[in-house]
Design a protein around this nucleic acid. Sequence first.
DNA 1: GTGAAAGCGCTAACAA
DNA 2: TTGTTAGCGCTTTCAC
Lengths: 355, 355
Amino acid sequence: MVRKNVRIKDIARLAGVSTGTVDRVLHDRGRVSQQALEKVLAVLNQIDYRPNLIARTLGSNRTYHLAALVPDPRQDPYWDQSSKGIEAARQDWAQYDVQVESFLFDLHDRSSFRTAAALLLKAKPDGVLLAPVFYQEALSFFDTLKLTGIPAVTFNTPIAEIHPLSFIGQDLYQSGRVGAELLHFGLQGPAHFIILHIAEDIHNAIHLAEKEKGFRDYLEETAPHEVGITTVNLNNPGDPDFKSHILALLTDNLLKGIFVSTSKATYIVASILSGHSKGNIRLVGYDLLEESSHFLQAGLIDFLINQNPKRQTQLGISHLANHLLFKRQPPASNLFPLEIISRQNSRSYLTSKVH
Amino acid sequence: MVRKNVRIKDIARLAGVSTGTVDRVLHDRGRVSQQALEKVLAVLNQIDYRPNLIARTLGSNRTYHLAALVPDPRQDPYWDQSSKGIEAARQDWAQYDVQVESFLFDLHDRSSFRTAAALLLKAKPDGVLLAPVFYQEALSFFDTLKLTGIPAVTFNTPIAEIHPLSFIGQDLYQSGRVGAELLHFGLQGPAHFIILHIAEDIHNAIHLAEKEKGFRDYLEETAPHEVGITTVNLNNPGDPDFKSHILALLTDNLLKGIFVSTSKATYIVASILSGHSKGNIRLVGYDLLEESSHFLQAGLIDFLINQNPKRQTQLGISHLANHLLFKRQPPASNLFPLEIISRQNSRSYLTSKVH
DNA sequence: GTGAAAGCGCTAACAA
DNA sequence: TTGTTAGCGCTTTCAC
């Protein structure tokens, strides 16, 4: 009743060739006559062949080396999550003899990106996962990868000029719209919103710009003449003026909400607000990190939009491994859902093993 | 540099026996002399043997039969998603010779559950995935499974008395809290909320009760004397009175929100409200289904809480397969995140390949 | 009880 | 350009 899976042997029989030939066709290894090629392809078109991946890994018995080019996890809890995802992927793929090595760079030092990239290339990996946070450096690194033919997956930062095997991230524009939706939900009448960027997040320039665009567009469409929006760029959070600057913003009577554009900025701003009555001013920011979840619980943050950095890298490695081992073509773009985290659903995200 | 893993062959050599004997020791298959046993155990104690699970599955070359006991997908788009997940899992695991057969029952007929369960048992599956929507019937079916030693994974409906290999679902109580949080967010002053159950959802009794409990508790804690809550149980949506009954509820001036406890009820209620001005009355319900997403876009539904039925079953099958093939122990409980779907983030959920 | 040997489906080296 | 064959590590059968 249930037909056994088709095997290479079956294809060979049907095509009237040997298993070796079928294998060569399947893997584009060449050294196959036009005639044989056609016969095999004809059969492959007829049937639904799904290679037994278990047998393939066992048979080929080779080890793949993947390299990840990511910011130092110790710099920022957001990037710490990215590294956690790589670690998780490492374990997922260990049984298939896929090894993952991380090359770290400094978020505030473009040259460290170049250095790490050079080191990575020396290791001659079979595939690369990278966060292209420095535009120019990423472009040139990408050129080198293209030349060497090493497949690369990017994540976090969309770069139009680059065409990686796959990009993993979010729709940043839409993310800004979600932020505006949450700030404005249920509000009536005139209001004032602030978009807060932290200049330190310069490596996230694309995030800041796209999110802001979405944020403004949404309110423009939904509440055309009711909502005033001010963009505030703040410098180094270590600055003595930083705190007072933020607190000064709160005195505005019409201020009904603050939208913070990155995860680090989110918990920094929340920590400054903590202890001060923020009244009915809503705060929406990014990412359910340990640092921010506390402020969410305390009611200082109303909503977080989750970017799922851990899953992003985990999926990235998985795409590379699947590509190398099983010749799977990942989607050119994976846009993660824009998860809304509230006080009441945050625990379900933290404890879930699914994410 | 990377020491190869120890293999059975190595153990056999070190112990001075054959691979067959080692295998018998490893699997407690008996028919091994005390002497040989000791020699092998001695070696095993010295070294760190980790069986190659990939080779194991390939070598044993057996087919596993899984059975799913689920409601008929044609009855309800929610359960249709569950079946979709099973189908997806079927394809995921086909290559490993894992077969999945579905046994359907009627949501409104407990006896059909018994019948389907009996049929299922006759098929002697190696593992079972089930939605234990009928309490008594599930208990007795579970007893039989225990006796036969067939591992079972449950989903959707938590049942305290049952200890399956794994349960997949959501924290229903917390889900109700999320519903209340969303209805009440930003509201000030007195308000009236309605919890709307549809009696037809009797098979979801646990859902209704737990969600309501969470809903009420949240408001009790957050807005003790401000919010009045009424529970409304409605009968058969086909009833001529049904529509007028719902519309009558809207006339209440203080009514600020409606919380609908299941996915089917959600889009039914939304469809009734459509065309009638619902004013500022918020509507929160369940699941981003095709039927409801339209109402979300139109602004009739404010938020949906996603239960992810498709992923629930897909994960369930995956747990069973991993358990049988690779001896993996799934977590006793998988509580999915309580995803909040709004108009602005719904597309990101629908288009994402991650979910 | 024990060991030898033939698979599982696929890869890859090698001879033809 | 082909087909044959020996693995990959484990299971399982079958003589002895």
